[in-house]
Amino acid sequence: MPSVVAINISTKKGVAKQSISEANFVENFGIEGDAHGGNWHRQVSLLGQESIDKIKAMGMDDLDSGSFAENITTEGIELYSLPIGTKLAIGETLHEVTQIGKECHQRCAIFHTVGDCVMPREGIFTKVLKAGKVVPGDKIEIL
């Protein structure tokens, strides 16, 4: 069963995020206290631990959850194969997949630190349809 490995936030964009023990997700906004929150289509970013492990295998073994600025680090789900519009139940919340990957117009701090960024290829973005709490270990269900 797919699950949440970590929840990560930051106060500014383009930097690695810090893991937190629980997050309050706000409908049509994102995570309370996160720089990416707002009324737009990329409220929450998700990246699989499997994707992070690919970069770790390239010799960057000091990477943690949040190193790629993802809000939710997942396990057991191939995020980038989900069609746009897919609904995900995560903890108490409900999300809709709005974008797969992203274009990086400039090399952010993450790229310069890590030397590669898997987020543009394998990360996804969601919009929060139903508010609630999410904690590491919560299950992720594809609806």
Rank of each mutant, 00 (worst) to 15 (best):
A16R: 03
C117R: 02
T126Y: 14
E50G: 01
A109T: 15
G123T: 06
A89Y: 15
E75V: 12
D61K: 12
I100G: 01
A35D: 06
E27Y: 05
E78L: 07
Q43A: 02
D116A: 09
G33I: 07
V118N: 11
E103L: 15
L46N: 00
E78W: 07
Y80W: 11
G48K: 00
Q18H: 09
K56D: 05
A69M: 04
E92N: 08
V44T: 08
S21P: 10
F29W: 15
A23P: 14
K87Q: 09
A109K: 09
C117F: 03
L46E: 00
G37Y: 12
I55G: 09
I110G: 08
G38E: 10
V44N: 02
M119D: 01
L79F: 09
I84Q: 06
D34F: 02
A109P: 12
I110W: 06
G101L: 03
N24F: 14
E70F: 03
G76Y: 08
L129Y: 05
E75F: 14
G85F: 02
E70K: 04
M60Y: 15
Q18W: 03
M119A: 02
K54N: 06
E92V: 05
Q99C: 04
S65W: 10
T113F: 08
I55L: 12
V128N: 09
N24Q: 14
Y80V: 00
F111Y: 15
L88P: 14
Q43W: 04
Q49G: 13
A16W: 02
Q99G: 02
D64E: 11
V114M: 00
E22I: 01
G76V: 07
P120M: 13
W40I: 00
T86I: 01
V128F: 15
G76I: 05
A57K: 13
I31Y: 12
N28R: 09
Q49T: 11
G59I: 07
E75I: 14
N28M: 14
Y80E: 05
L88Y: 11
G37R: 04
H41P: 08
K87V: 13
P120T: 12
